[in-house]
Amino acid sequence: MVVEDLVGEFSVIGSNQNEGKNEYKGTLSITLDSNNRIIANWLIGKEQKQTGYGFFNDNILVINFQYLDDDEYVYKGVVVYRCLNKDILDGFWSEELGDPKFLGYERCFRIQVDAQTNC
């Protein structure tokens, strides 16, 4: 695989970094900057936006991410995905203020676009 294979939209299923492992769903959009570095944008649920920047090597994708909570506090973390193929990413993540006894988990599935209808 090459980094260009990862560009696109993914549906996300994940669990939070806590004992309860609260589940969530969302989307992940991956694009590249002019240096072929990863630009990531998540939408968790219908309202929580997260952004990240990262790199890809040996089928491993690493992204440093951040987001604002309702109180305008910036949370930061890192997610590591094993790219099973260009359509499935299997990952784990941790935030700086998350429970250090646990990791969060995500699995991302490429959203297929029908070339004929463009949707």
Rank of each mutant, 00 (worst) to 15 (best):
G8W: 06
G54A: 09
K21F: 07
Y81P: 00
N22Q: 12
F56Y: 15
I38G: 07
D90Q: 12
E95Y: 03
F56W: 09
I44W: 00
V7M: 05
N36S: 11
A40T: 08
S34R: 11
E106A: 12
V12S: 02
R37D: 12
K76N: 11
S94I: 11
N85T: 05
K101L: 15
N18G: 14
S11Y: 01
F102G: 11
L68Y: 15
T27F: 08
Q66P: 01
G54Q: 11
N18D: 13
I44T: 04
N57T: 14
L28T: 05
I39F: 00
E19V: 10
D90T: 11
Y67C: 09
F92T: 13
N59T: 08
E9R: 10
K101V: 10
N18Q: 12
R37W: 01
D70E: 13
G77S: 04
G8C: 08
W42P: 03
K86I: 03
D33E: 03
I13K: 14
N22W: 03
D71N: 11
T27V: 09
E96I: 14
G20P: 00
K49V: 14
D33R: 08
L61M: 15
G54M: 10
R82Y: 07
N16Y: 03
D33G: 05
Y67F: 15
V80N: 10
I44R: 01
I38H: 00
G52N: 08
K86N: 10
L61E: 08
N22Y: 02
V12G: 02
K21S: 10
C83M: 08
N57F: 10
D71I: 07
K25F: 01
D69S: 07
L43Q: 10
E19Q: 11
Y67H: 12
Q50T: 13
L61W: 04
S11K: 06
K86E: 13
G45S: 08
E19Y: 06
Q66A: 13
L61G: 05
N35M: 12
K76V: 08
R37H: 09
K21M: 09
F65K: 09
S94T: 15
N16E: 13
K46P: 06
V79S: 04
L84M: 09
W42T: 02
I88P: 00
V78C: 06
Y75S: 12
I88T: 11
G8N: 02
V80H: 11
I60R: 15
D87Y: 04
R37M: 13
Q17A: 06
Y105A: 14
K76W: 02
V74A: 02
E47I: 13
F102A: 14
I44V: 15
G54W: 04
